[in-house]
Simulated scan of single mutants.
Amino acid sequence: MTRLLTLLKQNRSLILFVSLMLVFRSAVADWNSVPTGSMKPTIVEGDRLLVNKMAYDLRIPFTHISIAKLADPQRGDIVIFDSMASDKKLVKRVIGLPSDIISMRDNVLSINGKTLQYSDASSQKKDASEIRVENLLGLNHQVKLAGISGQGIITRQSSFGPITVPADHYLVLGDNRDHSADSRMIGFVPRAEIVGRSQTVVFSANYENYYLPRQERFLHPL
């Protein structure tokens, strides 16, 4: 016991630093690794995202207990949440806000009766997918689609609804629309599960090239 106390005294600066760092990562900001392609083309496998954990709430460190609400997630936000339904941390884009009526037909979204607009298709990929720009009621972002409006491949995930987003919940989708386990599988996301928002890639490791960093994605905005 005496030896332990001596070690603690000798290393108290290091212990304090580590403790403060853990508190910072728990309640203020952290990074999140992305192991899958469910958010392609916006986020790719190997990206490390900077997560702002104070974007929506001030929380007690190491808990989901909010002591002050700072803001609500907005449509188009890329959020990180601890999903109880899938038992893992996920990264998706907010599509539906509380009370929104959402539907999808052949990969074309409608929000509150307004059908979203999509740009012309890019050159088709080897896997028959297409990259398009989705106008999310004023926010343009890219999505990867297996098919849209009768073109290409239509999957079982390409149509749903209309459904109404309940209070204190959000409908989230991956940008890689036909290869994402999102609200179409796990249901609406409770606000309490959302731990932060990401707007920046800190750095990215290329899994297909010996985990070397992708220089073009250093501090890449989302």
Rank of each mutant, 00 (worst) to 15 (best):
L97Y: 06
V143Y: 09
W31V: 11
Y170G: 05
L50E: 01
Q10H: 13
I60Q: 08
G147P: 07
R217E: 06
P221Q: 12
G113V: 09
P190T: 08
G174D: 03
A29F: 07
G147R: 04
K53M: 00
S119G: 09
K53N: 02
F160I: 00
R3S: 11
G152R: 08
R3L: 11
G161Y: 05
K53W: 05
H169L: 03
E193S: 15
Y211M: 10
V44F: 00
S99M: 12
N206Y: 08
R214M: 06
R3G: 03
N209A: 15
I102Q: 05
Q142K: 15
F160L: 02
S159M: 02
V108F: 13
S33L: 09
R156E: 07
K9T: 11
F160M: 09
L70D: 06
I60H: 06
I163Q: 11
Q215T: 15
P41G: 07
P61R: 01
V195A: 00
G96N: 04
A181R: 12
N206R: 13
D120Q: 15
E208V: 10
T164P: 04
L49S: 01
D106Y: 04
M54N: 05
L7S: 14
M104R: 06
I67N: 02
D106I: 02
F218L: 13
P190G: 09
R105Y: 04
Q10G: 14
Q199V: 11
P61A: 01
F188V: 09
D182P: 02
F203M: 00
L136T: 12
P98K: 07
A27S: 12
R217V: 04
D87M: 10
Y207I: 10
V51F: 09
L14Y: 11
I111S: 09
D120A: 14
L16E: 04
Q74K: 15
I194E: 01
F17H: 14
S38H: 10
K144T: 04
L171T: 06
F24L: 07
I60A: 09
K40E: 10
G138S: 10
S159H: 01
N206S: 10
I43C: 00
A128Q: 15
K69A: 05
P221W: 11
V189D: 04
A167E: 15
L58D: 07
L4V: 12
R105E: 14
E45C: 03
M84P: 13
K88G: 10
V44I: 14
Y118T: 04
R12H: 02
S122L: 13
D168N: 15
A167T: 14
K40F: 11
V91E: 00
S149A: 12
V189F: 03
L173F: 14
R75V: 08
Q215R: 14
A205D: 09
P190M: 09
E193H: 10
D30A: 05
I60R: 01
M185I: 06
M84D: 13
K9Q: 15
A27W: 00
V18D: 08
Q199E: 12
E134L: 08
T164W: 05
Y118F: 10
P98S: 05
L145T: 08
K40D: 07
Q199P: 04
H141F: 13
E208L: 11
S180T: 08
R105F: 03
D168H: 14
D168M: 13
K40P: 00
D120E: 15
E193R: 10
L173G: 08
A121Y: 04
